[in-house]
Design a protein around this nucleic acid. Structure first.
Lengths: 457, 457
DNA sequence: TTGTCGGCCGCCGGCCGACAA
DNA sequence: TTGTCGGCCGGCGGCCGACAA
């Protein structure tokens, strides 16, 4: 990583930009356009719409910002890759250490497409960190009271209503009075924009099933849902029903902007970051998790450091999580076939998409040919002691595991021997035949390491 | 105006960027996204939708590009004015002499909102001009076979069809067979995207009137038209019917971009222009004529020079054209109350919006407090020999006038005496009582000066 | 000349169980 | 368990002239 030196008056500018930052924070509580005050979007619902793989950095935390990744998002939006003739910004490193100042959740009024706005402030090192007050922003994980259904032709046709999967209705909806003839109730549900939708929920037919009838077609029409799109329901902490929409990839419109040319947008990304880097002043980015190239370009430091613990080499096997069409996680396996600069011309020695991968399953459904080291799991990064296919279960381990602070360790060996000591497993961690402790898993988002045996077996 | 000096190897870079420009031109014939080949939009229809006040520069011509104006368009789109903390580009002058390389017409697939894409190449002076081949692009004026109607509640309700103003039906639609009972026909009409719409045109009712019935509601639904929006019909050179849409100002949605922050967009505008200026390389801008701040930021040289001929001073009367709610031109009168830098901090000595104006009619309907000298008409710039209120008629004079090349003259006096000489009017042009030649009018778009008497009186 | 309304008719939106995947 | 279909009923989409601005 290239480090750019801050100007001599770093302290001063940092102070200036901090006060303007606070102004900005006040503004953020208010409106984007000048209309009625806007409530913050429901975080659980936002994350449910975002899918299981999307996580956002915590306000106050440190991240690396990758201009290349940001530029890729612009390319995906404009459907034009960056013009090679746009100017160079020699003072802009390929990764920029930043403190996250705030993260706000948004959704497009028209399409319900979710995105996040982040304000990042470049810092020289962790020592520079200005502690921002905690605005009560808590990490929101994928809700457990959740279901997501891919809409069928029947669900979206004008001919009928919505067929509710049985488990979903029983887990999420208020209990029906099954003695009534027929059993039915009125559901009151809110979407991301806090619009209220009411649906008639009825249990009828031969055989019996749960259906949403009256009110459903209004919703389909308003959101312009098509077969293949998904709807999801969650119950929030006040056990209010909420619903969201995920459009199929095919449905992604994202018409080219009529505001700014693709070139100017790419230049804007780079110039804004370069200016912020030079002055240590905050800058604002939007992150659209559900677009074609879903690589995050704001990487939490802990997640980034994971990659530093791991040695990768050509021929090494790797796993990587993707979202399935049914909105679940699924790990795809592959082999590292090359390690090189993704863009040797413009971003020499950048860590962005440095690894070339050949995927075991060459589905027409596109997986990237190039990935970054922090996106993948390697045998070492996962401390493999058991077959890879069981890992998804481990990620549900949570409470039965034990945790230690990963950041205390300077390298993999220190970490490993400390784990072994902690659990009385000296010498046994490296031996795949001793399987009392089958699984070890790092939860990078929470900076903790979980150890436990497989509770499912 | 500040002039920035080109680098020593100007010739070289100019050559390089020219060849890339030709590549770009080839690309422009193809698609924006990678789908089926796209036909060029109908220019007459585009201009009809744009309204009577919008004109675009000719490919190959010289213009001044104003970064401030471009930035204002971004502000209008994001509804956020430029952050004062965005970086300075000391090498970017407030106006940039450019050659227009191409102009392509576009319309948003979703909203039919029109916009134009222009590629501009900065040049040092007129001598630098690289003559681009003429792609047969001809200037398209407001079509004469044209009508535009503001939609009423009845027009857009689901209850009925569209009431066609009588003159419009008789001038534009194919003649009905008035012997039929009732007289009716099927109209086949295309929109900007070349979609075909068919309407039943019927002449019925008591008293008789022209109506569009079957097919109309589909169109209203698809375009999401509301009362207050306008539709317009034109007949092209092959006497095909075309129709377009103009949304009411109230209806302008333009939700904030989820791609780039407003700051990054503003920076992108400035950095792209600065880079293009430094390298004399082409850059691309989008111009959205129908947005809130409709000031053009790409000004034809002839129009710009007009302002140089004219002296403005505080207290001077001025006229300026605006579009009325009925999509007609209307001149509003005002008084110059100040002449000063619009943004003395960032754009010192810029000519952009240098004039402060107090308008005679302080309608709630917003007219700008500040304008640029080339946007206005002053008594001198119009060579006033007759009351202002007749000028709109003169602009229809066209063929009965005579023309001379305005650009030959270095100042107003030279121009005036040459006109006088040309028409044998020495000494009489300045005398308001000698009225054989009542009116003199400059058609800035065509670089010609028209002289004639008022054919309407 | 043309905007809005009441009247009226027929199509399709929408609720139902049958049936099969 | 749930996707699709045929049946069937009623509300509203949509065509009409009356009437008035």
């Amino acid at each position: 990583m290239r480090m750019s030196n801050g100007p001599p008056q770093v302290k001063n500018t940092a102070f200036c930009s901090t006060s303007s930052l606070l102004d900005e924070m006040k503004l953020l509580g208010e409106v984007h356009a000048s209309s009625a005050p806007k409530k913050a979007l429901n975080s659980e619902l936002w994350h449910a719409c975002a899918g299981p793989l999307v996580s956002l950095p915590q306000p106050g935390s440190l991240v690396y910002y990758f201009p290349q990744g940001h530029s890729e998002q612009v390319s995906a939006s404009t459907r034009r890759s960056a013009n090679p003739e746009i100017p160079y910004y020699p003072n802009l490193p390929s990764q920029l250490l930043c403190q996250v100042h705030n993260v706000t959740l948004h959704a497009d009024k028209e399409t319900d497409e979710i995105y996040a706005q982040m304000t990042l402030q470049p810092v020289n090192s962790e020592a520079d960190v200005f502690r921002v007050p905690d605005f009560g922003h808590t990490k929101s994980k994928q809700p457990t009271e959740f279901f997501c259904k891919n809409l069928t032709a029947s669900d979206t046709s004008t001919h009928g209503g919505f067929s509710v999967p049985r488990r979903a209705a029983e887990k999420l909806f208020p209990q029906l009075d099954y003695l009534a003839q027929p059993p039915n109730q009125e559901l009151i549900v809110r979407d991301l924009h806090d619009n209220v939708w009411t649906f008639r929920h009825i249990y009828r037919g031969q055989p019996k099933r749960h259906l949403l009838t009256t009110g459903w077609s209004l919703f389909v029409g308003a959101k312009r849902l098509k077969a293949g799109d998904s709807v999801l329901f969650i119950r929030d902490d006040k056990s209010q029903l909420l619903l969201g929409v995920r459009r199929s990839n095919r449905q992604q419109t994202s018409s080219p902007s009529s505001v700014l040319s693709a070139d100017s947008m790419h230049i804007g990304v780079l110039a804004a970051a370069a200016h912020a880097a030079a002055n240590r002043s905050p800058f604002t980015v939007y992150y659209n998790p559900r677009w074609q190239c879903p690589s995050e370009f704001v990487i939490p430091l802990a997640k980034y450091h994971k990659a530093a613990y791991t040695q990768v080499s050509i021929g090494m096997r790797l796993g990587m999580m993707f979202e399935t069409e049914e909105s679940n996680k699924r790990r795809y396996m592959g082999t590292i076939t090359g390690i090189s600069d993704f863009d040797a011309q413009r971003w020499q020695n950048s860590k962005w998409r440095k690894l070339q991968v050949e995927w075991d399953e060459a589905g027409y459904d596109e997986r990237p040919e190039r990935v970054s080291s922090w996106e993948i799991e390697t045998p070492e990064s996962l401390f493999v002691f058991s077959p890879l296919r069981t890992y998804t279960k481990v990620q549900k381990l949570g409470s039965v595991g034990r945790s230690i602070d990963v950041t205390r360790f300077r390298n993999y060996d220190e970490l490993k021997s400390s784990i072994a000591c902690m659990f009385g497993l000296e010498g046994r961690l490296d031996d795949p035949r001793r399987s009392e402790w089958k699984l070890v898993y790092i939860d990078y988002e929470n900076d903790v390491l979980l150890v436990g045996d497989d509770p499912w077996e």
